[in-house]
């Protein structure tokens, strides 16, 4: 014994990763070349034919490429050749801009909906219809009306991030315990101050949950949005490398997308822990 649960979980994780990498390596390694090919033909066809290698890059190729990106993330060699750090920065910038706008709209509006049954009932049909629309369906409309691809991507992020925050804020505000509000009322605390000192802290955990869902969706959508609008961003990078048939770069980009998404999620999880209170 002597292994903590955490240690054992870590060991198992490492084992899963090891098995996966080994299987990946075995599945994609070269199987020895076909002999006696015309050298000109071999040069034309590449390793796939000459060495029996898979078109899929192996883990070692990806590791080498990953290392190249990590050591030099911010180079800029023209529109189609920028470092992955720059591309990620574009994407994160768009997400934060659209997400920030969504926060500014969704939280006050959610407060209003949560506090007023009238507004809640009046806006409910619109929210119910708008919520299930894929954010990318807005893209043509955004491109036509905004006439700027970059702003359209930001708009798409905004529209996808707004709903979970709006719905969660309204729910959190509407379900604040009545007795807490009554405490504030008996203390003659004015309504606006009640909203700040009772409703906001009471609803904060629910609001943060909505914000966490939203940032996840925003990060999912930005990749797709950038594939459409092009130019910059990690989504564009993936699509561009696909057009270059550089699968190794696509895999590297996927890894980066995963890591950034996890970091964004964990940041909001930490913020949620700060405002959560035990009852």
């Amino acid at each position: 014994m002597g292994w903590s649960d955490r240690g054992r979980a870590l060991l198992l994780s490492a084992l899963v990763l090891g098995v996966f990498l080994a299987a990946w390596h075995l599945a994609t390694r070269g199987t020895g070349g076909a002999e006696g090919l015309d050298p000109a033909y071999a040069a034309l066809m590449g390793a796939q034919v000459t060495e029996g290698a898979s078109a899929m890059p192996g883990p070692l190729d990806v590791a080498a490429e990953l290392w190249r990106h990590v050591t030099d993330p911010f180079y800029d060699a023209g529109p189609n050749d920028k470092g992955i750090g720059i591309q990620l920065a574009y994407s994160i910038g768009r997400v934060l801009l659209g997400y920030g706008m969504a926060v500014i709209v969704a939280i006050p509006l959610g407060f209003l909906i949560g506090m007023s049954p009238l507004v809640s009932r009046a806006l409910d049909p619109f929210i119910q219809i708008m919520k299930p629309i894929s954010p990318l369906a807005w893209m043509p409309l955004a491109l036509y009306t905004i006439r700027d691809s970059n702003a359209s991507a930001v708009f798409v992020i905004f529209i996808c991030a707004v709903w979970p925050m709006l719905v969660n804020t309204a729910f959190g505000v509407a379900t604040v315990r009545r007795e807490w509000l009554n405490v504030a009322r008996t203390l003659e605390i004015p309504a606006w101050k009640r909203a700040l000192t009772v409703v906001l802290p009471a609803a904060a955990p629910t609001i943060l949950t909505g914000m966490r869902i939203s940032i996840g969706i925003a990060w999912l959508v930005i990749v797709a949005a950038e594939m459409l609008v092009g130019g910059t961003g990690i989504g564009y990078f993936v699509w561009n490398e696909w057009n270059n048939l550089s699968i190794v770069n696509v895999i590297v980009a996927i890894l980066f997308i995963g890591v950034v998404g996890m970091v964004l999620d964990q940041l909001l999880a930490a913020a949620a822990r700060l405002v959560t209170f035990p009852e």
């Binding site: 315990r177 007795e179 009554n182 405490v183 008996t186 203390l187 003659e188 000192t197 802290p201 405002v275």
Partner: peptide, 28 residues
């Protein structure tokens, strides 16, 4: 309407759980 002249002690104590003991009393 409610008034500070009439304090209420609620059945379920109704303390604000995100505030400390001092915070709850100081709020009032």
């Amino acid at each position: 309407g409610p008034s500070l002249d009439r304090a209420v002690i609620f059945q379920g104590h109704a303390l604000l759980p995100w505030l400390t003991v001092l915070g709850n009393v100081a709020y009032a």
